[in-house]
Design a protein around this nucleic acid. Structure first.
Lengths: 156, 156
DNA sequence: ATCCTTTCTGTCTTTCTTTGACCTTGGAGA
DNA sequence: TCTCCAAGGTCAAAGAAAGACAGAAAGGAT
């Protein structure tokens, strides 16, 4: 298992115990895992972004810390946010995948549906010779279309 | 016996033991068989394709892997049929819609999933300025990708 | 022997992870 | 206030996989 995954799991376990909010010491954690402190930043920036459903803040200097807060949105709010703000006119596969996964983790959609949606906009699904910019525009529309279908399903 | 056949047999044996889902390290396996790593790709691409009833996914970078999932036998036949006969290289929205509806009616997929799939290839989702021929090729791929995702669901 | 298909290797590319060197910030004391 | 130190931040380079693809080698059919 990758170190990053281990650290990710460790932080998520802390969050589960500590009511979706946790404060860590970067250096301490790095020491604990025998890695460079910046490894912690890497984990945060690849697995604890707003798209992943987390917000982080930090304080430098003596007694510094990193705070990680898990944002909890209702399924409706989350869908509305994605439709109106997050998915604009264009989105790439990686971002789409993260959003789908986040929808599943928050329980807004089933893991199966999340995977289905991610598959629909995967590189494999889009392996046609058109510019990436056009693909990403299409990804946005396809994703939006599916989310609307889910939103409809939800409120009758 | 061909090396490829040996590797194929090896992987299938792993699958038999490990409940039709297995994760391999490409480099390790190549080392084990004293061959080039890309040989593994050759085996996968000639013997573990969706048409053969397998779906693969992978992760690059440190701690990377290749996951091979075996699709159920009955689903495999249906999948091959859908992929090759019904969808092919191109499909228009109307045909896709009919297909989705039939899948729901036959119980192959849930009505919700069927609707989700139809939404993903709807005219609204595809309202970008590219030729209709390209759109339909894309529809085929998107649909194919989603069906593979469904086939990949465990057990089912 | 020749031609075609399948198998296999090697090289280069892409993606993800890990580390390290250097930068910035905020406090605590002098 | 000024200086120093203890954090955390940034970024680029190195490392660790897997992917793509072209071309060589091996088999098989005629």
């Amino acid at each position: 298992m990758r170190l990053s995954d281990t650290i990710e799991a460790f932080i998520k376990e802390m969050l589960r115990e500590d009511q979706q909010e946790v404060e860590i010491k970067r250096n301490e954690l790095a020491e604990y895992f025998h890695c460079a402190p910046s490894q912690i930043n890497y984990v945060l920036s690849t697995r604890f972004t707003p798209d992943h459903g987390y917000v982080t803040s930090s304080q430098r200097g003596g007694g510094g810390y990193i705070r990680i807060v898990q944002v909890r949105r209702s399924a409706e709010d989350q869908l509305a946010y994605l439709l109106n703000e997050r998915i604009g006119a264009s989105i790439d596969f990686t971002a789409a995948q993260i959003l789908c996964r986040q929808l599943a983790e928050s329980g807004a959609v089933s893991p199966e549906d999340a995977y289905l949606m991610a598959s629909a906009v995967s590189p494999a699904a889009f392996s046609v010779p058109v510019p990436e910019a056009v693909k990403n525009a299409l990804r946005a529309k396809v994703l939006r279309s599916m989310l609307l279908a889910i939103a409809q399903r939800r409120d009758g």
